[in-house]
Design a protein around this nucleic acid. Structure first.
Length: 268
DNA sequence: TCGATCCTGTAG
DNA sequence: CTACAGGATCGA
């Protein structure tokens, strides 16, 4: 589920539900979910109160009293939610923070690729130091993109997937952004000229901003809602919504990239 | 910079 | 059964 809009939706929901809550105890049901940290480390969060919930790229930071913080990453299938009764949780829940009022803050993750760590403030800063600019922040400008791409010959898709320069994009929204900017996913970023950079910058903002309300809605009303549909992502073999050509799929870094072979030429 | 790897679930 | 999945890290 989680790219920037989905993580933002999770953060807003957990923030509203759990800020101020007291953690009474912790249960790690699957050790892998705290790896490489020992599960017992999380026990130190017992007796602490939740001060705030924030997003840094695709990371979730839950600040606690006592100078501590939880760093949560959802990876592919994770979800962080507050449930009414910490004793009644889904089978795929990996970590349970038992709240004083009986509710539970839980990491639910079928694939167990997600993780939660308990860190001191300095350690947290250290771990998040490499995280790039948030594409919805004011710091994300076309000029920033120019300097960030710099002399890198990396394919556009790879550059956008890398969380160091820009933090929060993933496989879906990278595909959507490149499609809107009409940039071929394999095109080296250092060859993009200012008009393409401008288009890419705008495309990223548009794609994320349009996805956010949908993400919030689907977390607000779980259950009935058809899956989101995209302009290119997961549309291999279907007609391009712009030109009618068949959407193609290539592999980059072991992941699928969807694109329109006609709209997204080797563009400068 | 690429490929393997961490896991489990689901679709074909 | 195989292929693939909205992510990231690690070692070669």
């Amino acid at each position: 589920m989680p790219e920037l809009p989905e993580v933002e939706a999770v953060v807003r929901k957990v923030r509203a539900a759990a800020t101020g809550a007291m953690i009474q105890g912790v249960r790690v049901l699957r050790d892998r979910a705290t790896h490489p940290q020992a599960p017992v480390v999380l026990a130190e969060s017992a007796g602490q109160r939740i001060l705030s919930v924030e997003r840094r790229g695709k990371n979730i930071v839950v600040r606690l009293t006592g100078g501590l913080a939880l760093r949560v990453h959802l990876r592919m299938t994770g979800n962080l939610t507050v449930i009414p009764d910490f004793r009644l949780h889904a089978a795929t829940v990996r970590v349970v923070f038992e709240l004083e009022d009986g509710r539970g803050l839980v990491l639910d993750d079928a694939r167990v690729l997600g993780m939660v760590h308990l860190l001191t403030e300095p350690r947290l800063q250290q771990e998040l130091s490499g995280i790039g600019v948030d594409p919805l922040s004011d710091d994300f400008t076309a000029s920033f993109l120019v300097s960030a791409t710099g002399a890198s010959r990396r394919p556009a898709k790879m550059f956008l997937m890398d969380q160091h320069p820009i933090a929060g994009l993933g496989n879906i929204y990278v595909a959507e952004s490149l499609f809107r900017a009409r940039i071929h996913p394999a095109h080296p970023v250092n060859e993009l000229r200012r008009p393409r950079i401008n288009a890419l910058h705008q495309a990223i903002r548009d794609v994320l901003q349009q996805a956010l309300p949908d993400a919030i809605a689907s977390y607000e009303h779980p259950g009935r809602h058809e899956g989101m549909s995209y302009r290119v992502y997961d549309r291999e073999g279907l007609p391009c919504l712009t030109c009618g050509s068949l959407i193609g799929r290539i592999a980059q870094g072991g992941r699928s990239t969807y694109y329109c072979p006609k709209c997204q030429k080797e563009f400068r």
